[in-house]
Simulated scan of single mutants.
Amino acid sequence: MRNTARWATALGLAATAVLGPLTGAATAAPEASSLVLTARYGDTFPTLSADATVPQVREVTLTCSPTVSGTHPDAKSACTELRRVDGDFDALKATPGMMCPMYFDPVVVTVSGVWEGRSVSYERTFGNQCVKNTYGSVFAF
């Protein structure tokens, strides 16, 4: 009986060593994080008149995983900031002590895509471009 217990234990350990890595829990691939950020500068509510100015739109892409890439001017810093807040754009705060002129020239920022496997849809209006840029490198494009 003692040899049977030893063999059972040895076979159990061998099975765990062979089959354990096949469960997928050992090395999970990081979830994809790929976003499109747009900034619309100018009139928030354009009129239908002939002299209405058309808002300017700037669009960048930001991929944070599996590798950092995209057309964002500082993708590495933007990804670092987003990882720090787990992709919660509302958690991004203005840099303390930054000064901006007090005039209203709205900038509407939208974000859509996927952050670590979760669908993202975000919109925020900043008072002007300077204010937008104080919220870190994520919105500085």
Rank of each mutant, 00 (worst) to 15 (best):
L13C: 12
N3W: 12
P73Q: 07
H72Y: 06
L62C: 07
S121E: 07
L48H: 10
V109P: 01
P55Y: 03
T9L: 09
S49P: 10
E59R: 09
A28Q: 10
Y122S: 04
M98Y: 14
D90T: 14
T110Q: 06
C100N: 09
P96N: 04
V120G: 00
V120W: 02
G12M: 04
A140F: 02
V85Y: 02
S69F: 01
G20A: 14
C100M: 04
V107P: 00
Q129I: 13
V107L: 07
D43S: 15
R84C: 15
P21K: 02
M1D: 08
A14L: 13
D51A: 13
D105F: 12
A15N: 10
V54A: 11
V60F: 02
V131G: 03
T27Q: 12
S121M: 13
T134A: 09
A25M: 15
A94R: 08
V109N: 00
R58D: 14
T95A: 06
D90K: 12
D51M: 12
P55R: 01
A5H: 13
W7F: 11
F45W: 14
G12N: 08
D90H: 14
T71D: 06
T44H: 14
A52G: 13
P30A: 01
A17L: 15
N128P: 11
T63Y: 00
T9Q: 15
V131A: 06
L62P: 01
M1P: 06
V109R: 03
T71E: 05
Q129H: 15
S119W: 11
R118G: 05
T134P: 03
V131E: 05
T44G: 11
G117I: 03
G97D: 08
